[in-house]
Amino acid sequence: MNAVEVTGVSKVFRVAKGAEVVALDSVSLSVVPGEFVSLIGPSGCGKSTLLRLIADLDQPTAGEVLVFGKSARQARIDQDYGIAFQQAGLLPWRTVTGNIELPLELHGVGKAARRARAQDLLALVGLSDFADRYPDQLSGGMQQRVAIARSLAESPELLLMDEPFGALDEMTRERMQTELVRICAETGAAVVFVTHSIPEAVYLSSRVVVMSPRPGRIQEVVTVGLGSAGTRDDALREDAAFFASVKAVREALHGDAVHEKAPHSVRGVETR
């Protein structure tokens, strides 16, 4: 069973005076369990809209979205996925531990179990020494790590991430990317990740979904053959295969007609 199955999805927004904006047009995409898929495309192409449809934060005008074989709404009710956005969205009056515990508390998990889970997650994101700090005592990168830990609180098999590192400086962003691939390797969660950064998409992903300008369609899917998440580290950023994959995604993004095969990389249009 696929983690995500999007079939023939379109989304039309009604705006002023009865006008319509077609955000997505006949999009179909599958994400298998444990796979990391990035969505990339020009601003306004519908990549965040697609993520919101998967998360049941909005509903498609046409087509179907399934998460682990369930409707998006049922998957949300069952807490089958975690979500992280560009802003960490931490509650300033709660400690780091309190923020991580929040989803568990809302779903009636006992205090001892919540605390034990928070301690495990703090160790996973490397923040055990900051358990009793408040958000304003943390750097931006540390706040995002707390947000990722919170998204993992209920052990979801799917993470939905909308530019979670977009507001960070480049050095912090690269450190967070390395942390994320490590966390994904340890948890085995599938990820759908929205980004504007080609190098970020390539470094993180097993596949990069390139979307067209509005109305958003899947223009091309680039399969990135850079090894499993557990083997990726900073040295990969200097690898010839990494640069070749970045080139392949850039050409797809800009509609280049020349389809070159990069070393250890396959490039092709998704036919679903």
Results as ranks from 00 to 15, higher is better:
residue 2 N to F: 13
residue 7 T to K: 01
residue 7 T to A: 00
residue 9 V to R: 03
residue 10 S to F: 07
residue 12 V to M: 06
residue 12 V to T: 15
residue 14 R to Y: 12
residue 19 A to H: 01
residue 19 A to S: 03
residue 20 E to P: 09
residue 20 E to N: 10
residue 21 V to Q: 03
residue 23 A to I: 06
residue 23 A to M: 10
residue 26 S to D: 15
residue 26 S to W: 05
residue 36 F to V: 13
residue 41 G to E: 01
residue 44 G to Q: 07
residue 44 G to T: 07
residue 52 R to K: 15
residue 57 L to Q: 05
residue 63 G to R: 03
residue 64 E to F: 04
residue 64 E to T: 14
residue 66 L to T: 06
residue 69 G to F: 01
residue 70 K to D: 08
residue 72 A to I: 02
residue 74 Q to T: 15
residue 74 Q to C: 07
residue 78 D to V: 07
residue 85 F to I: 12
residue 86 Q to I: 14
residue 86 Q to W: 11
residue 95 T to F: 09
residue 97 T to W: 04
residue 98 G to K: 04
residue 100 I to S: 08
residue 103 P to Q: 09
residue 106 L to G: 04
residue 107 H to F: 09
residue 111 K to F: 05
residue 113 A to N: 06
residue 114 R to N: 04
residue 114 R to F: 04
residue 117 R to I: 07
residue 123 A to Q: 13
residue 124 L to G: 04
residue 124 L to H: 09
residue 126 G to E: 02
residue 126 G to I: 07
residue 127 L to D: 06
residue 137 Q to F: 13
residue 138 L to C: 08
residue 139 S to R: 11
residue 140 G to E: 07
residue 145 R to G: 03
residue 150 R to E: 05
residue 151 S to Y: 01
residue 154 E to C: 00
residue 154 E to Q: 02
residue 154 E to A: 06
residue 160 L to Q: 00
residue 160 L to I: 07
residue 160 L to E: 04
residue 162 D to H: 00
residue 167 A to H: 06
residue 172 T to E: 01
residue 173 R to A: 10
residue 174 E to C: 06
residue 174 E to M: 08
residue 174 E to K: 11
residue 175 R to D: 07
residue 176 M to N: 03
residue 177 Q to N: 15
residue 180 L to Q: 00
residue 180 L to P: 01
residue 185 A to P: 02
residue 187 T to H: 05
residue 191 V to F: 07
residue 192 V to G: 04
residue 193 F to V: 06
residue 196 H to L: 14
residue 196 H to A: 14
residue 196 H to D: 14
residue 207 R to E: 06
residue 207 R to N: 10
residue 208 V to G: 03
residue 209 V to I: 13
residue 214 R to F: 09
residue 219 Q to G: 13
residue 226 L to K: 00
residue 230 G to E: 10
residue 232 R to L: 10
residue 233 D to K: 02
residue 234 D to M: 11
residue 237 R to N: 05
residue 238 E to D: 14
residue 240 A to W: 07
residue 246 V to N: 03
residue 248 A to K: 02
residue 250 R to P: 02
residue 257 A to L: 00
residue 260 E to L: 13
residue 261 K to A: 11
residue 261 K to M: 03
